[in-house]
Design a protein around this nucleic acid. Structure first.
Lengths: 191, 191
DNA sequence: GTCTATACCCAGATAGAC
DNA sequence: GTCTATCTGGGTATAGAC
């Protein structure tokens, strides 16, 4: 507790992160952010040039944490693929309850052209690349799918299960999710 | 060609359907709809009470077609589960290139409370129920997952692959998609 | 049925005082 | 650094003439 008080800038980022990652860029207004941060809306513009700049700063923070953690997980020794995937899901679910659909939609559709490019690369490096590396380690050369396809597919599979709101009709447990991803819907436990 | 000219109302619905299902409810403005329909924006309000009413009419049209077609597919005789799933994907991809994430997000988050209930039931009946019926036919009683879980999971799996825009980085073919869903990522072709 | 004109609201962003 | 006041533009929706 060397410096107990958060800076206004960091406070804005933390609150914006929650709102952006839950409701999305468009649906989050600068007035909402300001209200929750306990400041006036124009004051945001002292700390950031535009609303989009806030979004970028938020994603830079998130990406750093995610990348570090995912790289740790895939480097664990003596673990089955299933166990590592389970760790990934647990990490995202507990520490990172983010709506990945909305996040990807915002990156692809709500940003200016330059920022879209930048954020897409950021997303790829921090979210996708560790999974690509993981699958590269584990799959055979003659596998039916390459590592990139599997990594993308993995995110498509787990996204509905790691966000917080969005009418939680998805009820599978993380280990069931991994089972479906690795073995499919067919029960082969008894073969 | 008994009546060649589309009514204004139907024209509005067709254009709204494309926009809503591609960009979502919020991101589609009544001005855009009117412009593409070749009418003025206030004229929309002669045909529909609100923007939300347009969305509901659109989803009623879509649901009817989807429900009929999916029920046809699951009733086909002498087909493997894989073949039926493939037919479902082909139908959705070709005739119904809709962003299912956005659709579900709109139903859950952009509608008034009553309309949310109504549309959710509509979605369940037309999109989900046929898949539930299909899995009920094919899975064993002691399977690891029930039909509802599998149906939800199936949509989560295929959604990224059937929309038209949204930066097409997903490249799996429909048959690969079915393979992953049914057998998982492990290559067991040679066992 | 379709139009013009316009009301009303909420968004992002800026100017300038303190 | 933070505020009040305000601009500008976009959104949905209504009134009323034709």
């Amino acid at each position: 507790m060397s410096s107990k008080k958060k800076t206004t800038r960091q406070n804005i980022l933390d609150i914006s992160s929650e709102l952006f990652m839950d409701k999305g860029f468009q649906a989050t207004s600068t007035r909402q952010i300001a209200e929750r941060a306990g400041i006036t809306q124009p004051n945001l513009y002292y700390h950031f040039k535009t609303k989009e700049a806030i979004y970028i700063a938020v994603l830079e923070d998130l990406s750093k944490v995610v990348r570090e953690q995912l790289e740790l997980i895939i480097q664990e020794d003596n673990q089955l693929l299933e166990e590592k995937l389970l760790h990934v899901i647990h990490f995202l679910k507990e520490k990172h309850p983010v709506n990945l659909f909305i996040m990807r939609h915002d990156i692809n559709n709500e940003m200016s052209k330059e920022n879209h490019q930048f954020l897409y690369q950021l997303w790829r490096q921090s979210y996708l690349q560790p999974l690509i590396d993981l699958f590269t380690q584990y799959i055979k050369d003659d596998a039916l799918f390459n590592a990139v396809e599997l990594a993308m597919h993995f995110y498509g599979n787990i996204s509905p299960y790691i966000q917080k709101s969005e009418g939680n009709h998805e009820t599978l447990r993380p280990d069931q999710l991994v089972h479906l991803f690795v073995y499919g819907i067919i029960d082969r436990k008894d073969t």
